[in-house]
Amino acid sequence: MAPSAEATVEPIQPPPTPPTDRPLHTLPAPFTDSNLTVLAQGAEALVYKTVFLTPNTPCVVKYRPPKPYRHPTLDRRLTKARILAEARVLVRCKKEGVSVPGVLGADWDEGWLALEWVEGKTVRRVLDGWAERITALQREGKKTEEETEDEAMLGLMRRVGRVVGRLHEIGVCHGDLTTSNLMLKPPERADTSRTPDHTSDSLEGEVTLIDFGLATQSTRAMQEEERAVDLYVLERAFAATHPAAEPLFQEVLKSYGESFKGARLTLRRLEDVRLRGRKRSMLG
């Protein structure tokens, strides 16, 4: 042991975290003075919650701030193209009856897109809660309760499979199909006086797809591949939640396979994707 050597090596210090209390961007018109709080931040966009058109229409504003590292002209073109692509796919899905948030407004010169607010929680959170309960039940050895849990969960999985199948049927691939981009929208109650109960463990409700920022309306040749990759990404998201969630995914695939003509081909393609991963060989 050489204590002198230890002393010369300086420990690596993480860089100080930047202050987060002030907004990183000024919001575009007309939200500039609205003082909104960020819900989420991705690589390209910031997501805010606010109201739009009427004081009781909640909405999500997805803002793509200008990127200082890009040439301004290119930046404007890319921002416009990406906002429009997302809006067009969403309108297409709405028209075809796929459950997605509606487009409420946009300004591609300013860089924002306003979308309908989706109530409920993500399938990711539902799965996490379910995995916790299952573990607890198994520990106590209550077999029957575990089975009823499973039946409700399998029902949810079938709905997930159907909604993804319907999306693919109309020629749209999501591009980032994870359990966090699937929402479980609780059924609207007759008495509007009661606000939706976010803490409930109910598995009832409509499965709604969100975040179409990477979605494509693909050409026929690419479709099968992209569909299979969508399913593969979703499969990995399931596997990452809990080991018990993997059998659940089989139910998703089963109802997906029955949901439209051509789904079988996609499932066969999924086998290939599993072997090689999400990225395609450059020789292909």
């Binding site: 969403l90 909604v163 409509e206």
Partner: peptide
């Protein structure tokens, strides 16, 4: 909405006018 079979209706009955409004707002936006 659309007459096709296999429409995803995994929730309750949809509010027809609300759906129509949503599509129209989207079309006006793009």
């Amino acid at each position: 909405g659309n007459g096709k079979t296999g429409v995803v209706k995994n929730g309750q009955a949809r509010d027809e006018r609300k759906e129509m409004e949503s599509v129209i707002l989207g079309m006006m936006t793009v």
